Amino acid sequence: MDALKSAGRALIRSPSLAKQSWGGGGRHRKLPENWTDTRETLLEGMLFSLKYLGMTLVEQPKGEELSAAAIKRIVATAKASGKKLQKVTLKVSPRGIILTDNLTNQLIENVSIYRISYCTADKMHDKVFAYIAQSQHNQSLECHAFLCTKRKMAQAVTLTVAQAFKVAFEFWQVSKEEKEKRDKASQEGGDVLGARQDCTPPLKSLVATGNLLDLEETAKAPLSTVSANTTNMDEVPRPQALSGSSVVWELDDGLDEAFSRLAQSRTNPQVLDTGLTAQDMHYAQCLSPVDWDKPDSSGTEQDDLFSF
């Protein structure tokens, strides 16, 4: 819950932080000083300027060897085509990944977070970031790969997607708890209302004896509580940590079903599988986004697919 609360507080303090972009060759504004600060901008989305290598189908939802083989196929196909790589912007948030063309600003792909089953910074092609997700059109699994400016960037994108998945799962947990509370309150309110109706004398007997209905007592009954809980029953509950912020979080049926399955089948359902080692994760978390744009010590960066 700490990640969720800190993310909400950060967004309320400075929503404009989320509009910064990394990996864009110096076009961005001043960047936060450390990885923790940038992680807090996830709610509205972190932007990464990358190059799209392509996509291939895979048979399993996750796995280092599986993704490595898929990336190898994608890279080989991209090299064989001889075409310049498409420059894209990857927007990562707890909602998922939005992929747009840098030149036309046209939407290429919009992947809900619950469809993503794996992401990684490839070991062999260490400047490549990739994720595996279920197609929104059918049940097939797709591996999408992107060329980053350097290994640090690939690791940073991988960690960002993993963190977005974690925050999304926490949102789901909060929403589920809130819905259970509202359902319980609604049920209790309905029981109270039913009890009051059972003990209320029939209207005919009131008229016969000349008694008047006590409207004041009726007004004191917990009807307002019942209506408050039943009027918006169809509205999706939102985490309290975000009250007053500009973010509107809505959970669709697909996300609810997917996270429910994860909660039942996995020990740590909030953790998205990645190909990063503990050492890689520690190294990337210690980086400032400013470091992502620094040239690798191995030599001059080449803006070309064939540089790796």
Rank of each mutant, 00 (worst) to 15 (best):
E216H: 12
I113C: 01
G54R: 00
Q187Y: 02
F306T: 01
Y131F: 04
G96E: 08
K181W: 11
S49W: 02
Q163T: 15
S246R: 14
Q240Y: 12
A130S: 13
G244I: 06
A162P: 01
D291H: 11
S81C: 12
L193C: 06
D183L: 15
H144I: 03
S16K: 05
A156F: 14
N232F: 05
M153N: 14
R196A: 09
G45D: 05
C286K: 03
S298G: 12
F129R: 00
F129D: 00
D101P: 01
S227H: 09
P202Q: 11
W249Q: 11
D183I: 10
A278V: 12
F171M: 08
V271P: 06
F48R: 04
T230Y: 07
T120Q: 05
T277I: 06
K204L: 04
W292I: 04
S205A: 11
H282Q: 12
H28T: 10
S140Q: 10
T56P: 02
K150M: 10
N211Y: 07
D280I: 13
T300K: 11
S49Y: 05
H28W: 07
L242E: 15
L103R: 09
G275S: 05
A185S: 14
G54A: 00
G254T: 14
F165G: 02
Q279M: 06
Q264D: 11
L43C: 11
K150T: 15
D126K: 00
K79C: 01
T56A: 04
I97R: 00
P61G: 05
T56Q: 13
Q139N: 15
V174G: 08
V290K: 10
G210W: 06
G275V: 02
C286H: 11
H28R: 11
R266K: 04
W172C: 02
Q134N: 13
S175P: 07
T225E: 09
I98M: 05
D183H: 08
L107Q: 07
I116P: 00
N229D: 11
D214Y: 06
L213R: 15
A76H: 02
K123I: 14
T77Y: 11
K150D: 08
L305M: 09
D293T: 10
K176I: 04
E64Y: 13
G275Y: 03
T77D: 14
A208L: 08
S14R: 15
E250L: 05
G25T: 03
N105T: 05
Q240S: 12
W292D: 06
D191T: 09
T209I: 12
K150P: 01
A156P: 00
E301P: 08
P239N: 10
A156R: 14
K179Y: 07
E142M: 09
V167C: 11
N34M: 14
S297T: 11
I98W: 00
L31S: 12
R27F: 12
D304Q: 06
G54D: 00
G190L: 03
L203A: 09
D256W: 04
A121T: 10
S140C: 10
L99M: 12
S243V: 08
L262G: 03
S81A: 04
S67C: 14
D234T: 07
A18Y: 04
K84P: 07
W172Y: 03
C148H: 01
E64F: 11
L276S: 02
E59R: 10
S16D: 10
G299V: 10
S265R: 14
A145F: 00
E65W: 06
P202D: 09
T209Q: 15
V92D: 00
D191S: 06
L17Q: 13
A168F: 04
L276N: 05
L305W: 12
R196Q: 11
G54M: 01
P32A: 15
P32F: 09
V271T: 07
R27S: 15
L262V: 04
A69G: 14
R182V: 10
E40G: 11
D234A: 07
V128Y: 00
H28Y: 12
T274N: 04
L276D: 10
F129C: 08
E142S: 01
Q264C: 02
K294L: 09
P269H: 03
V92G: 00
I108F: 15
L53I: 01
T89S: 10
L85P: 03
G82V: 14
G189E: 07
G26C: 13
E59V: 13
L223D: 03
M153E: 12
S81P: 01
T77C: 05
M281G: 04
A162C: 04
Q60M: 14
A18L: 02
L255H: 04
